[in-house]
Design a protein around this nucleic acid. Structure first.
Length: 283
DNA sequence: CGTAGGTCCTGCGTGC
DNA sequence: TGCACGCAGGACCTAC
């Protein structure tokens, strides 16, 4: 589920109930997710005030008044359930504890943030806020796709001479950080580039065209997430899911949306992951 | 060095 | 209804 827009949406959803509040109790129900939790995690979280939340790539960073920062990665199936707070007229009751509720933050005002992750590809770690850039999971990340450091010149330079398929290159978080399988498929469709095309053999002009398209796709997805987030009436508090209309992702065998194109969307597997594309529109 | 493939986990949909 | 299989939005690690 979580690529950059979903992580941004989750961050925006949990920020109001965390920021400025004290974690009255950190409940940690297992010793690890993808990796072991940090030493004394419960003690290092309990009683700490949350100064603010940030996002770097697909990581949520929670700054604490202990000069430490909590790093959260949602993996494939990680989700955050917010409860015990009131939005407008609606009060979210606490849910029945569920399978895979691995970590629960009990806030000082009664709100809860429950981290549920069936597949446990997610992660949490604690680090000194001052040295966050040196953290091994953050260190080698490429620029934020919505930031100024990610631009046409940069991308052309980074893809120059690369023999890897453009699909794989855009999934490489060291080149640009935050894209995942869905949005790479969508971006390549908009750009009219075949996912198997070698990154280094795409003209500079076409590579340059990817930059604004990446920004567009991510911005639209964030906007869609934000709008669904505002509507809590039918929500049980679960954040990060929103219905987004995909043009190619998960549309194998369905008609291409391009006007006048009568081809159907094809699925291929590239380094173990599905790529969806239109064989007519993407070359 | 760059690149492809295996791997960690659980759950769900599909076909028999 | 049960069961086997393929697949899932991530990304590290190893082998070539």
């Amino acid at each position: 589920m979580p690529e950059l827009p979903e992580v941004e949406t989750v961050k925006a959803g949990i920020a109001p109930v965390m920021q400025g509040h004290v974690i009255a109790q950190a409940e940690v129900n297992r010793p690890n997710l993808r990796w072991p939790f940090p030493e004394r995690m419960v003690d290092r979280l309990t009683g700490k005030r949350v100064l603010g939340l940030r996002r770097r790539s697909k990581y949520i960073l929670v700054d604490l008044d202990s000069a430490e920062t909590l790093l959260i990665h949602l993996g494939m199936s990680g989700r955050m359930l917010v409860s015990g707070h009131t939005v407008g007229e609606f009060h979210h009751p606490h849910p029945v504890p569920a399978k895979h509720d691995h970590v629960v933050f009990h806030m000082d005002d009664g709100a809860r943030i429950t981290f549920n992750d069936a597949r446990r590809f997610g992660a949490m770690d604690l680090m000194e806020t001052a040295h966050q850039e040196d953290h091994w999971l953050i260190r080698d990340l490429g620029p934020e796709p919505l930031g100024n450091a990610f631009n046409e010149t940069y991308l052309i330079e980074r893809l120059k001479g690369r023999n890897t398929p453009i699909k794989s290159a855009l999934l490489d978080q060291r080149i640009v950080s935050g894209l995942g399988n869905i949005y790479v498929c969508e971006v390549l469709f908009r750009a009219g580039i075949h996912p198997a095309r070698k990154a280094g053999r795409i003209s500079a002009a076409r590579v340059a065209s990817l930059v604004p398209l990446i920004r567009d796709v991510l911005s639209e997805a964030i906007a869609a997430g934000g709008s669904s987030l505002r509507d809590y009436r039918q929500s049980d508090g679960e954040l990060g899911y929103f219905q987004h209309v995909f043009q190619v992702y998960d549309r194998e065998g369905k008609p291409c949306v391009t006007h006048g194109c009568n081809k159907t969307i094809t699925r291929i597997v590239q380094s173990g992951r599905s790529s969806f594309f239109c064989p007519q529109c993407q070359r």
